[in-house]
Design a protein around this nucleic acid. Structure first.
Length: 609
DNA sequence: AGAGGTGGTG
DNA sequence: CATGCACCACCTCT
């Protein structure tokens, strides 16, 4: 049945509230509602740098526009009571944005959130971009055109009077949430993903708190690391230009007597010309895997240059510019539906791609605030445990239960060797090969790429894989079933019920097989990666409760797929580290019942372990 | 502005 | 028949 609008999009009913007495009355009326729409207007996107102008809270028929410049909302009776009330659903679009502003300016931490943006992301995972504007949802669910230009007009409105146009716009933003909410709810139930949506909603306030808190970055130390890398980079660059001199006999001299670089080291086009036309190496690309095979010294020099240049460009000044001048911390944006699998993505800066090796120790620059410790915990080999559990493979499960080193154990089975505690030392190559298989098959890898990766013939790789699947027969069965089901149903699913949909190609599509194969690989991986995501989201909710309840002093600073990083008051850190690990395990056990889980805690002064 | 190449993370 | 999942940032080139 079509949804009937309860308001007039051209004349939205609203009340502009500037006095406390009227605010109290409005809030009193609102608290008996089943659900309210909430939105804010601000002068900026960053609560640390801007001002809160209005908070709109409304029903499906009327929106109350509270003037946050005049009213002390945090102290007004009924405001906190309404926004933290667990019986009244707060409907928002991209709730973490409003959450941060309301928290910052009123001290109120909203509860019981329904987020129309996240709901849409859950409903279209794998199909869309993961980002949905209120504009597009208003159009799709209510046929309403929203004027996006008015939002920009709030930037300079800190003291001036709002126009009626602006107030109407603000009001419409809460009114339009209802038709979206009502219809999404039906869809979420119909697709059986309401529980996943609820997990996302519970997670969103945790994400808001995490972004709001941010994490301290030691800029001085960061610069010291950059200086060292820059020396290496310049050295490699000099070596490179020296080495290519013979190939550029006409190398021009510029006006200042120095040589003008004959080649832009960052131009793959010019490099290809050098390697193929001058050096006659005939390489298909200049990627690491190709260059590593080349004997020519220039290839090695380029690799050295690239290694340093990569770090300087991706983690240089541009990174430090993202440190917030007010807080001296970075406040990355975490997109909780950033990946089609349910994983987080992260940007500005992307803390999920800070180098982890020991060569570039950027992670040591992330420190707790004074009097606090970094407390970190990682799930150990989580995706392998998930695969063991979901496939129900007895041998696989037993190996985990017995606490064996899984890569070594797989190697022992595949190569017919005896498993011992020092297997890793005795057969490092065999273990490495098994590791490649263990990971690769979770991505649906074929024998061809396995052969390339562990440097054996395709025939050998084929044999290894066959041996692997003979060792773990249920794993093969399970993977095959995921691939098949995805094509039959058009989606794959985690045990938590998180779905990822696929756009199936037409039979006539010239790339039909290629596309089907790709979907099959994605469908094999999705329940594994997605279950990890489900677990970490539950864990984040559990852990946040530890801080919110006042049990521990501190907060979550960030999360990297299978890792949660917190800063916790020094005297509580050690104890908290075990609480953190246990919460992560407890969260995982909601979905993983047959296999024991582990999460390793660390306490220190840096984000690194 | 967008695509493609490269490379950082789990 | 093609052949490893999920991201984001920076660079060059068009």
């Amino acid at each position: 049945m079509p949804y009937v609008l309860k308001f007039d999009p051209n004349e939205p009913k609203y009340e502009f509230i500037t006095d406390t007495a009227r605010a109290v009355e409005a809030l009193k009326a609102l608290i008996s509602e089943k659900a309210v729409g909430v939105d804010v207007e601000t002068t900026h996107t960053d609560p640390y740098l801007g001002a809160l102008l209005t908070v709109q809270i409304g029903t499906e028929t009327i929106s109350y526009v509270f003037d946050a410049r005049i009213l002390h909302l945090g102290e007004i009776h009924g405001f906190s009571e309404l926004l933290t009330n667990k019986k009244v659903i707060k409907i928002l679009h991209n709730a973490k944005f409003d959450y941060k502003w309301i928290k910052h300016f009123t001290g109120v931490a909203m509860e019981n959130i329904y987020d129309t943006m996240l709901a849409e992301a859950v409903l279209t995972a794998g199909l869309g971009s993961g980002y949905f504007s209120l504009l597009s949802l208003a159009q799709a669910y209510a046929g309403i055109d929203m004027n996006k230009d008015i939002r920009k007009s709030f930037a300079g409105q800190q003291h001036a009077h709002f126009t009626e146009e602006q107030l109407k716009y603000g009001a419409k933003d809460t009114l339009v949430l209802f038709p979206i909410f009502e219809q999404q709810l039906q869809k979420l139930k119909k697709e059986n993903v309401l529980n996943v949506a609820k997990l996302e909603f519970a997670t969103t306030s945790v994400v808001a708190e995490m972004e709001y808190r941010g994490i301290y970055v030691d800029r001085k130390k960061w610069h010291e690391i950059l200086d060292i890398i820059r020396v290496d980079r310049d050295k490699a660059m000099a070596e490179f230009y020296e080495a290519i001199k013979p190939y550029f006999p006409t190398a021009q001299f510029n006006l200042f007597g120095g040589t003008a670089p004959a080649i832009n080291l960052n131009s793959q086009q010019q490099l290809m010309d050098l390697f193929n036309n001058k050096l006659k190496l005939n390489i298909p690309s200049t990627g690491v895997e190709i260059l590593e095979e080349q004997k020519h010294p220039i290839a090695q020099i380029l690799l050295n240059y690239r290694q340093s240049e990569k770090l300087l460009s991706a983690f240089g000044e541009s990174f430090l510019e993202l440190v917030n001048p007010k807080t001296n911390r970075v406040h990355p944006e975490f997109n909780q539906m950033g990946a089609a699998t349910g994983r987080f993505s992260c940007n500005k800066p992307n803390l999920q791609q800070i180098p982890a090796g020991r060569t570039a120790s950027f992670r040591t620059c992330f420190n707790p605030k004074p009097g606090y410790k970094m407390v970190v915990s990682d799930y150990s080999s989580m995706e392998m445990r998930i695969l063991a559990d979901l496939s129900g493979d007895e041998k696989f499960i037993k190996a985990i239960k017995d606490g064996l080193d899984l890569h070594s154990y797989t190697a022992a089975l595949m190569f017919g060797l005896e498993y011992t505690d020092d297997f890793k030392k005795k057969y490092p190559d065999k273990r490495q090969a098994a590791k490649a298989i263990n990971f690769g098959l979770m991505y649906g890898m074929g024998a061809g790429s396995l052969a390339r990766q562990i440097d054996v013939t395709p025939e050998d790789a084929e044999q290894y894989m066959e041996k692997y699947f003979q060792s773990y027969p249920s794993v093969r069965k399970w993977l095959d079933k995921q691939a098949k089901d995805a094509i039959v149903h058009g989606y794959s699913m985690t045990p938590a019920g998180r779905k990822r949909w696929y756009k199936l190609p037409e039979k006539s599509d010239p790339e039909y097989r290629k596309k089907i194969s790709r979907i099959q690989r994605q469908a094999k991986n999705h329940p594994i990666q997605g279950t990890n995501a489900d677990a970490i989201k539950y864990a984040l909710v559990f852990v946040q409760e530890r801080f919110k309840s006042g049990q521990y002093d501190g907060g979550i600073t960030h999360t990297v797929h299978d890792e949660i990083v917190c800063e916790v008051r020094e005297d509580q850190a050690e104890e908290f580290s075990h609480v953190l690990s246990n919460d992560m395990i407890r969260a995982g056990e909601i979905f993983i019942k047959k296999v024991p889980l582990a999460s390793e805690p660390f306490v220190g002064d840096v984000w690194e372990h």
